[in-house]
Design a protein around this nucleic acid. Structure first.
Lengths: 347, 347
DNA sequence: CTGAAAGCGCTTACAG
DNA sequence: CTGAAAGCGCTTACAG
């Protein structure tokens, strides 16, 4: 293993000079510094003590890592911006690989040299977040909610705008409105489901379990939901797909099988990036600013760490609802306005 | 600042015991360990020396950070998988913020405690990559090419499949084929442009500068390109859009203005994720496996670092060409096959 | 501009 | 199960 001692020997100088060269002390001659740095690089030197930076925060998954996901990417982008104010860096940790069964989470994080951790979690690994909070290690969970006052989290309130989205469909004249969600019910999807139910309730429409679809959150799941909706005997005139992939899959499948959006079916989607502009027609959607979630999480975490005492915080940021071209009045109302347009299945 | 000494004082034990507790030595009683870890967490302790992990590699941008980009996300996902074999972790660095003007890149990276660095670069910051290589710090650039044998890089050969894509269009009967690219010409976009020209050349078709569009790589750029292509007096029957955002923007704009794809216009796109399945119609595209780029870069880098000597490497991974539903014969050939179908503008 | 020596934060072999 | 003391890797005030 490379050390100041070895480098000193090879360069024919004292360890004092090596240390100075590595730490950019101005009193070392340019020639000596270059020679020492070259040897350090060749021998793969890394300081095992000394001035090394101690301002890292971890980014970790309690479940499977999903770094390539667009939501995670936006999140991570926000996190990197959030740590800027306090000059922290972000380390992507792999807990599944490195956490030893006999050590605590605190010991693991300290070994990795991180001062705090931003967590992404799943329904079946929530207990890991709670265990970390119980140990008292500075942590903030993104996009989930917890009752434990010692566990910091930040998430979106997607219920309010889900209510708004469904009420908007009702105001356009829709009465049979379907709902699709991820078949793994995390807090967010449950919020949207409750928003859907609350909106129906508030406007005196009956909830029908047959209109609720739970499917894997991918394009083909969305395509399947569209096919099922369109093949129902008393088919809905609108659908709220509360997941980005389901929404994209459905709107493209509509094109493929000739279902006109919004003439035959109105579609409200959910967007956590900019994909509402990347489909045809542009999609009316409840939107989540994923970057802000990561930014706020990282900002609060690093600020409290920098101050010396980490105090737990819980924060909810609002979503927003955007109307684009995938929603309109239902076929029966269109038919009244222009009798020859649209294919109504109503008597 | 918290230290073993302070924690020892507060816990009423020796620094020996504190060190043991922090490092999970089995001889410390459970009660003592818990008390010490609690104090360590409360005081924000982080080891300034000792067993701390020294297996970090950096992920840095020589230009602007674009972590939220889907390409970068896939890349980063690959990098996290690539470092697994040698048990490295990835630190997201912010060179713009932290690199001091008076220190070398080597000094900066050592200060951050990273043993090597994966670089993303831009046309106007390529010199930073070369400077890092000149210092001898282990580095690999993703998705660019260099002549310097000391600078490692990994990129895609998108020329071969660009030739193939344009030849495929020619084989379908297209003779006027447009081309669109990002207006900032990095290696990759230049490759695709050269592939386009080579294919025309090889089949004896004349290159026409008027059919080449350079635009900002976003949806609205793609939409603009489509409008311009369709409004040309002797308009092309096919287009190869050599950038994912341009391709998506164009195919959606086609829907919006009633240009039928592929009946009126064949579209070949470029995809670095799975978006070819997320548009209608599904898109024939030259595809780049971004994850593999990151994976290979990280694997080679960490392997050579782990072995003790970093040896530069240059690697090119192939793209692949996939035919989907956005390409078909040009209108004039369709017209011959089925006289009443399609709206031919030919005499 | 450089080095011998003291010092700092942590770990560990030895003693109890 | 715990601690005093030696040791390790690095930095720094002092001397030249």
């Amino acid at each position: 293993m490379s050390s100041v001692r070895r480098i000193a020997k090879e360069a024919g100088v004292s360890i004092t000079t090596v240390s100075r060269a590595l730490n950019n002390d101005a009193t070392v001659s340019a020639e000596t510094r270059e020679r020492i740095l070259a040897i350090a690089n060749r021998s793969g030197y890394v300081a095992k003590t000394g001035r090394r930076v101690t301002t890292n925060i971890g980014f970790a998954y309690t479940g499977r890592r999903t770094v390539a996901d667009v939501f995670d990417a936006a999140l991570l982008d926000g996190v990197t911006r959030g740590v800027d104010e306090c000059n922290f860096d972000v380390v992507l940790l792999n807990m599944q690989r490195d956490k030893r069964p006999d050590e605590t989470y605190t010991q693991y994080f300290m070994r990795k040299g991180v001062r705090g951790v931003v967590l992404r979690t799943t329904t079946d690994s929530r207990h890991v977040c709670l265990a970390i909070a119980k140990e008292g290690f500075p942590a903030v969970v993104i996009s989930e909610r917890f009752d434990d006052p010692n566990l910091s989290y930040i998430d979106c309130d997607s219920k309010t705008d889900s209510v708004r989205a469904v009420e908007y469909l009702i105001s356009l004249g829709h009465r049979r409105i379907a709902f699709a969600m991820h078949n793994v019910p995390d807090c967010d999807h449950v919020d949207r489901y409750e928003g859907y139910r609350a909106a129906l309730d508030g406007r005196g429409l009956k909830y029908d379990e047959k209109l609720v679809f739970r499917h894997q959150a991918n394009f083909s799941g969305g395509a399947t939901v569209l096919q099922m909706v369109m093949s129902m005997p008393d088919r809905p005139t609108a659908i709220y797909l509360a997941d980005p992939s389901l929404a994209i899959g459905a709107i493209n499948q509509a094109q493929l099988v000739g279902v006109r959006v919004p003439d035959d079916l109105s579609i409200v989607g959910f967007d956590d990036t900019e994909m509402r502009y990347g489909v045809f027609p542009t999609m009316t959607a409840v939107c989540q600013d994923s970057g802000t979630l990561g930014f706020e999480a990282a900002l609060h975490l690093t600020r409290t760490i920098a101050k010396g005492t980490h105090t737990p915080f819980q924060k909810t940021v609002p979503t927003f609802f955007e109307v684009h071209d995938s929603t309109g009045p239902p076929p029966e109302i269109r038919a009244v306005a222009a009798p020859n347009a649209g294919l109504s299945t109503q008597a």
